[in-house]
């Protein structure tokens, strides 16, 4: 009876495998882009560096370089505060982005396609084409 040293190890391995299956499956679905978080039509990227449409206004609410690097965190952080705390900063509302950057395809998608990301924000939020 005492010679079963290896069993718990094997056992743990088996359990881990099963759990991995259960947890990995949803993750795979997301990764494959088929999840409910269905992502935007990915336009195969062709051509040189992204060409951004020129913005309408004089200046962005933050410095452009900062925006380029941080807009996603900025939006996401604000998203939580807006939904949950009711924070409304009217001058910095997402709706107002479109006042200057008037086309999703000519502005947002340009970089997003270039770097191959497909955020699903605009599955629900509307933004001018």
């Amino acid at each position: 009876m005492r010679s079963l040293q290896s069993h718990p190890v094997k056992f743990t391995v088996l359990l881990a495998l099963v759990w991995a299956f259960v947890l990995v499956l949803p993750t795979m679905v997301v990764a494959s882009g088929h999840g409910a978080a269905a992502q935007q039509s990915k336009v195969a990227y062709s051509g040189g560096p992204p060409q951004l449409e020129k913005a309408k206004g004089d200046a962005c609410i933050r410095e452009s370089g900062w925006m380029r690097r941080n807009h996603m965190d900025f939006l996401k952080h604000r998203r939580a505060e807006t939904v949950r705390e009711g924070l409304r900063i009217r001058s910095e509302s997402l709706v107002r982005c479109a006042e200057c950057h008037q086309s999703h395809e000519k502005f947002c998608d340009q970089c997003h396609n270039y770097v191959g990301v497909a955020p699903d924000c605009f599955e629900c939020h509307s933004y001018p084409k």
């Binding site: 009711g86 924070l87 409304r88 009217r90 001058s91």
Partner: peptide
């Protein structure tokens, strides 16, 4: 002070920043 260009106080009676309280 923070109001962006094109944003007038008349259009929105609310202050620029509000939060649920």
């Amino acid at each position: 002070v923070v109001l962006a260009p094109g944003m007038t106080l008349i259009a929105s009676p609310q202050p620029d920043k509000t939060e649920a309280s």
